[in-house]
């Protein structure tokens, strides 16, 4: 028995590259065949198109590689315990790897702890699991793939600066007060558009109507505003209405790349949206899982792509659909870095 294992390990060493060898745990015999790999995913509520995008990314990538994927979602909005129950239910099954998106940064930590104790890998995508609670529960995240909101904001700032030039006044509209994502996007934008003067940020709670009111007030107080940045697309839609009503022609930027906002980019009412790619997050999650299940070394952290979608690439974005094609703009209109794909052994 023992001898066989050594023999098998020896064979696998012989056939795999040095890179992969580094990641093989001593107990692994030969790497798992793709068709034997089973992945379980627990995502957030499917009442949000963003998470449907992630679900599709997971399911279609699994199909592409021929691995099995079981995607489960939190039973309801904010149902942090329900989501933890789902992960617990799956933790005892014979899955090789788990993909998680926690509703709050803590609620899945105990479940992840159970999985880690069983020696299985956990890939965290989109929203990070809190490190302290993970440590307390004895859990370990093999790899994280998510957006860098600050960098996305910065890309938007740089793009607007190119459009309006330095030293102009830009209005900033933020999401909920104190929200980490909103703050990161606004800070990033400021850094990207350094040299401009900023009005705000005013908090419009991610809401279209509130953003419309806020933008109206800002335009009255500052008739010389040369542009607007909103921390999400819904608010950018509100700003676009205020700008149109004031008969101004100044650029409006949003973040997320939601379908409605892209239509407005096409129509020209919104200038640009810094898009995120939930589909790609799902794809990277599955690929990271496959690498882990094959015993390979998984990159610890990956920034998922973001793209400034404006007039120049909107047509491509609108036709860029997944195989099932529910939403436009599921994959970026250009090249992006995916460190996982090349590490997968295809057989």
């Amino acid at each position: 028995m023992k001898k066989n294992r050594f023999l098998a390990a020896g064979v696998s060493v012989a056939v795999t590259s040095a890179l992969v060898f580094a990641g093989i745990a001593p107990s692994h015999a030969a790497p798992k065949k793709l068709k034997d790999i089973r992945i379980a995913a627990v995502v957030k509520g499917l009442d949000n198109p963003f998470f449907i995008g992630i679900k599709e990314g997971i399911e279609e990538t699994a199909l592409k590689y021929g691995v099995t994927a079981n995607v489960q979602a939190a039973p309801g909005l904010n149902d942090d315990i329900g989501q933890a129950n789902k992960l617990d239910s799956l933790a005892g099954q014979n899955y090789d790897c788990y993909i998680v998106i926690p509703i709050s940064s803590n609620n899945l930590s105990q479940g992840i702890g159970k999985i880690t104790k069983k020696g299985k890998a956990v890939i965290n995508i989109d929203s990070p699991v809190d490190a302290a609670s993970l440590k307390a529960a004895g859990g370990k995240i093999t790899s994280f793939a998510g957006t860098d909101n600050k960098a996305a904001g910065k890309a938007g700032g740089a793009s607007m600066l190119k459009l309006i030039g330095s030293g102009k006044k830009i209005g900033l509209i933020a999401g909920l007060a104190g929200n980490v994502t909103s703050n990161a996007r606004i800070d990033g934008f400021k850094a990207g558009a350094a040299g401009s003067t900023f009005v705000g940020p005013v908090n419009a709670d991610w809401d279209t109507t509130k953003a419309l009111d806020a933008a109206n007030a800002m335009l009255v107080a500052n008739p010389d505003l040369a542009g607007f940045f909103a921390a999400n697309d819904q608010m950018a839609q509100g700003i676009a209405r205020a700008v149109a009503a004031a008969k101004k022609n100044i650029p409006v930027y949003g973040v997320d790349g939601i379908a409605d906002a892209l239509k407005e980019v096409k129509a020209g009412t919104i200038t640009a949206s810094i898009s995120q790619y939930p589909y790609v997050m799902g794809q990277m999650g599955v690929e990271a899982c496959i690498i882990a299940a094959q015993g390979g070394k998984v990159p610890a952290q990956t920034i998922t792509p973001y793209y400034v979608i404006d007039k120049s690439n909107i047509d491509k974005a609108l036709t860029n659909k997944s195989t099932r094609g529910y939403f436009p703009n599921q994959t970026p209109p250009g090249a992006y870095k995916n460190p996982y794909t090349k590490l997968i052994k295809k057989k």
């Binding site: 909005l77 149902d79 315990i81 329900g82 709050s104 609620n107 930590s109 105990q110 609670s133």
Partner: peptide
Amino acid sequence: LTIARIGAAEPAANTSILL
């Protein structure tokens, strides 16, 4: 008990528990 399970006091209401 909820806090014990999820390791945090969350300010957002979980309506599933009501249903």
